[in-house]
Simulated assay, not measured.
Amino acid sequence: MSRTEKEKMLAGDLYHAGCPELQADLAQTRAWLVRYNASLGLPASDRRRLLAERLAEVGPDAVIRPPFFCDYGYNVALGTGVFLNFNCVILDVVSVRIGDGTQIGPLVQILTADHPRDPEVRRSGLEFGRPISIGRNVWIGGGAIILPGVTVGDDAIIGAGSVVARDVPVGATVVGNPARAVAPRSA
């Protein structure tokens, strides 16, 4: 049985993003983002209701400060007390899970979307995604970039401006481009 492009996308397989079904989903998300990004002056409870309209899961006390940007929204799950500061970008062609109590600085990019390395396959317009999982009580500094397929362990710290291309172990502190482990600083 043939799968739709959306089914292929959600499975992390090669798919064509320009198919009508996915273009309709993107259009719905863009309309939702216009509403959400205009909500900064609204009470937190109203912004939370807006988040629940589009995201897969929104834990109690989860906050995203607008403006916020994503591809689909329905692949994003936020745990209890998650905080995303201004101008975060989540390219969520597959699952993005963010654990309880995680704090994410401004301008952070969480990117599940990936492209084939073979130039002929890439030229055909095919792409794929690899899920990202961010554990509990993680702190991600402003401007950091989390690349496709990365898992960040609980209690980890990612320094501002870091580019995270590999998994981050539980409790580790990583900085730089590419991000590498360093001894944690106190205070």
Rank of each mutant, 00 (worst) to 15 (best):
D13S: 07
N177W: 02
R48T: 12
F86C: 11
V168S: 04
R97P: 01
A62R: 10
L55F: 14
V63I: 08
N177T: 04
A38C: 10
T102D: 02
I104T: 01
R97Q: 09
C70D: 01
V164R: 07
A38T: 12
N75K: 03
L107E: 09
F86Q: 15
L147P: 01
S95H: 12
L40C: 15
V58F: 04
L42A: 12
A38I: 13
E53V: 03
A62C: 10
L147I: 01
N75W: 05
I157W: 04
V34C: 14
E120K: 15
G149N: 08
V34N: 07
I134T: 05
V150A: 01
G59A: 12
A38H: 14
P184F: 07
P148R: 06
R47Y: 09
S39A: 11
R166A: 15
D13F: 04
I110G: 04
A181T: 06
P184T: 03
I140Y: 02
G18A: 12
L111T: 03
I146E: 06
N37K: 13
G159L: 10
T29N: 09
S2L: 12
R48C: 08
P66C: 14
L26H: 11
K6I: 13
G153Y: 10
L55R: 02
A56V: 02
V93M: 04
D71V: 09
V108N: 02
G18P: 00
R65Q: 06
Q23F: 03
T173M: 05
L84W: 13
V163D: 02
